[in-house]
């Protein structure tokens, strides 16, 4: 019984992974959607990035990845620093029944 449910779960996973590929097949042909950011009512940094989006998407992509990575690691540092100050013992943990 247990084995069966496991197998079913596995097969379901397998089918599921294939679903997007199935969605790919067929369907009506259509044109690309183009998005233009409306820079007219933006100022400052937002204007800069929205303009970059319109003008030079590659540079925008590099910026996006860099900034995301930087913000991620920056926040990681800051939060670790703050959590250290709380005086909680975060290195060891009591046995947890997981």
């Amino acid at each position: 019984m247990k084995k069966l449910s496991k197998k079913v779960l596995g097969i379901l996973t397998a089918i599921f992974v294939w679903l997007p590929a199935l969605a790919w097949a067929g369907g009506p042909k259509a044109v690309d959607l183009v998005v233009v950011a409306d820079t007219r009512r933006l100022t400052g940094v937002q204007h800069y990035f929205a303009n970059l989006y319109n003008e030079n998407i590659l540079l925008f992509a590099i910026w996006a990845v860099l900034l995301t990575a930087a913000l991620g690691s920056g926040l990681g540092f800051i939060m670790d620093f703050i959590m250290e100050r709380t005086g909680l013992d975060l290195k060891s943990r009591k046995l947890v029944e997981h």
């Binding site: 820079t39 800069y48 303009n51 970059l52 319109n54 003008e55 540079l59 590099i62």
Partner: peptide, 18 residues
């Protein structure tokens, strides 16, 4: 690197019309 990146496209700005 960041300053360089920033300056590359600061010179020109596209305009938007709707």
């Amino acid at each position: 690197l960041l300053i360089l990146l920033f300056s590359v496209s600061l010179a020109s700005a596209a305009e938007v019309l709707q």
